[in-house]
Design a protein around this nucleic acid. Structure first.
Lengths: 242, 242
DNA sequence: CCCTTTTATAGTCGTGCTGACTATTAAAGG
DNA sequence: CCTTTAATAGTCAGCACGACTATAAAAGGG
């Protein structure tokens, strides 16, 4: 039996607990999200965020990383950035049963072509914003994830999580521009990043020559810092002061 | 029976879902937290964060607000700031059973003397940091909540949630100083707050005269803005550049 | 081989936010 | 009436940031 005497004055109901993942990557200068196509009702044929049930012996973080490995097909997801977003628990969010879902955002430096992994459902990278209405409340979760990632770019070193181990400052700037949907001044961005200790570390003598048409760019690695003091604020939108 | 056919390839286990609340207020210039004393094992006699089980027909937010009303004894908690922190789901966090807990932070402008509410367990305001080891993983939850609140003071108008409907700029400054544990320059704080449109709105002709010894301070209400652009950054600690 | 294009990198200049500091005003208390 | 206390006003320098210009180093085309 599930009930335990003397825990609280309320009898407690059991809930199904799932994890849902908003997995972001940059492909060809555009922000992409990993989606799976649902094969069953409800929302059969709709796209949804990858996810699955929490198993008895694992935490939500462990389950999220397991699902991430399964859906992306990557063998090693241990170094990837995975961050808990929030938990969605509205009673009607799954029409069949009561499901409480812990949502995560994951950031990938490069996108291997998605495949179903061990699941039958196919997974696909979709440009952010082009997916039609997603199943359940996944539109909301995805929008919340995008907001969170955009906000964390301002005051953390999160942007390097989108980049391969060695990257140029131009690639790092593209992360900001793509996620924020704005353009940044290149010399100013460079000055700001280099002036922040621990944000990036130069790779001595290395330069990216592959296919570039202009002057080869110096390569950098992610530094040891995690926070940005002061933050790298995104440009104020119209109607917003300062 | 709880299982539903065809949901996913995994058989899913049921979990108990609770909400835990880190309720903060300012009493006599010090940050206080609402704690309850446990009467039963495990952790009998230890202090713990208030909380309880999620009921079948309510979301975590609804449950949190219900618990907040019960534990504080306040009749109207609808205007209080309540914010989801994150979800704690490590398998061993409750020694008896598998419990997934959605943690919230709540901010109160003024602290009514706590009482047990409808619960038998007594609730008490405790200065932040003075409580001994809390039950379960509640020390971690409380520390996470404090971090979150401190960080959100920087870039949101959250500080007004600690203040009564009408407050002075000195009281608002005390919120920052108390939560951050630092002192701020009064003229500079004033300049910054007044220069941020929508942070506070003056109450025309009103001044706080009660008991004050110096010049009476003008009264303000919370403005319509929610975010601070640019943010009000806390002073850099030693060893931290910029 | 030169010239254009492209991209990275270097530097300049002015504005505005901020920290540190001083001065003034308006109350209470002895 | 003078001191104390706290709020409010104002000053000044440093620096971060936006906007902008200039130079360097590659590829490509005639």
């Amino acid at each position: 039996m599930f009930a335990v005497n003397g825990y609280d004055k309320y009898a407690h109901e059991p809930f199904a607990v799932t994890v849902d993942l908003a997995v972001f990557t940059l492909r060809e200068g555009a922000l992409h999200v990993l989606l799976v196509e649902r094969g069953q009702e409800p929302y059969a044929g709709h796209w949804a965020l990858p996810g699955g049930f929490l198993q008895p012996d694992e935490s939500a973080e462990t389950a999220a990383r397991r699902e991430l490995a399964e859906e992306t097909g990557l063998s090693d997801v241990s170094g990837l950035h995975l961050e808990q977003l929030r938990t969605y628990s509205e009673p009607g969010r799954d029409p069949r049963m009561r499901v409480v879902s812990v949502a995560f955002a994951a950031l990938l430096p490069d996108a291997p072509e998605a495949h179903g992994g061990s699941d039958a459902a196919q997974a696909r990278w979709v440009p952010y914003g082009t997916a039609g209405p997603l199943a359940f409340d996944h539109d909301r979760i995805l929008a919340d994830a995008h907001d969170r990632v955009g906000a964390k770019l301002e005051y953390t070193c999160l942007a390097t999580a989108f980049c391969p181990p060695e990257f140029t400052l131009g690639e790092l700037q593209q992360v900001y521009e793509t996620v924020w949907g704005t353009e940044l001044d290149r010399p100013n961005f460079r000055r700001k990043v280099l002036a922040t200790p621990g944000f990036v570390a130069p790779v001595p003598g290395a330069a990216r020559l592959t296919g570039g048409r202009g002057k080869p760019a110096a390569l950098y690695r992610a530094g040891t810092a995690t926070a940005l003091h002061p933050p790298l604020l995104r440009p104020a939108r119209e109607g917003r002061p300062a």
